[in-house]
Amino acid sequence: MIRSMTAFARAERAGSDGTLNWELRSVNHRYLEPHLRLADALRDLEGAVRDALRQQLSRGKVECTLRFSEANGSKALHIDASRAAQVVAAAESVASLINQPARINPLDVLNWPGVLASNGPDTQTLNAQALALFQEALDELTADREREGTELARLIGERLDALAAEVDALRALVPQMLALQRQRILDRFAELKLEADPQRLEQELVLLAQKSDVAEELDRLATHAAEVKRVLKAGGAAGRRLDFLMQELNREANTLGSKAFDPRSTQAAVNLKVLIEQMREQVQNIE
């Protein structure tokens, strides 16, 4: 299945320890480029998140944001009485050396490192929950990319059909246009009342017809268009292959335009370039 590189996903889960929230945003990029913004308490997840992205996606700039809001009362405060006693004893020992020392402030004791501690959520459990929730968000992002990719493939398919119609129409007109060109040259000689060597004139007309022959370009356009359809049907990470095919289609359309010798062939070349450019813009978003 063809995937787009543009998508958005969000996943949230509330628990006794608090609420986890993932937001994933994906846009087109030449390679896979993750940008992670994780809550401070969950920064250990970075490696696992990058691994999961590499396993499921191949291209795109992906912004992953994880927020964690702790539940009210999830942190129970605990005083290390032994540590507090040591701090008070040390403060009293110093106070005995001072004339009229200030009274010891209990808040100062609580602020001393190691006196006051809190039991937050279990880190290992929280990491596991956050990683499982990330997989849910990633699956949603992938599904979103697949839905948009299906639509992109449909739009490209419509333009491929229009391109094939242009190629077939021009192919049918080429003999008529060559005959008309030949007749115009003969009429011009007649108007100027010039006598030309019939054999030499025929050679020049053949050479001109060869220079104006666009059968090869039309065949290549048809071949490349068929390959684009095959790649779209095969699915997978086809963006780079499709981009290359768009370049080849554009090259053949340019050559076709340079050989144009009739307003109808000129217009056909322009129409083809417009269709190819429209497809190229859509291909830029394909993984």
Rank of each mutant, 00 (worst) to 15 (best):
S26G: 03
L133Q: 03
L178H: 13
L201K: 10
A215P: 08
S265Y: 08
L205Y: 09
G114Q: 01
E70G: 00
S96G: 12
D108L: 08
A226M: 09
T142M: 11
I276T: 11
E46Q: 03
V214E: 06
A102C: 13
R240K: 12
A128F: 00
S118W: 02
P113C: 09
L272I: 08
E158H: 04
R103H: 14
T266C: 14
Q100E: 14
A169C: 07
R13G: 11
D108H: 11
E281G: 04
A172R: 04
P113E: 07
A117F: 00
F68W: 00
N285G: 03
Q55R: 13
L160F: 03
E281R: 01
N119D: 11
A81R: 13
D122E: 14
R3G: 08
R182V: 05
A137N: 05
F68E: 00
A190S: 14
D139C: 13
A95K: 10
Y31T: 14
L107F: 14
L141R: 10
M177C: 03
L57Y: 05
N119Y: 03
E204F: 02
I104Q: 11
R147H: 05
A260L: 07
G236P: 11
V27M: 02
I156G: 02
R184W: 02
S4D: 08
V174H: 02
P106N: 10
E158M: 05
A169I: 03
T6S: 01
V167Y: 01
L20M: 05
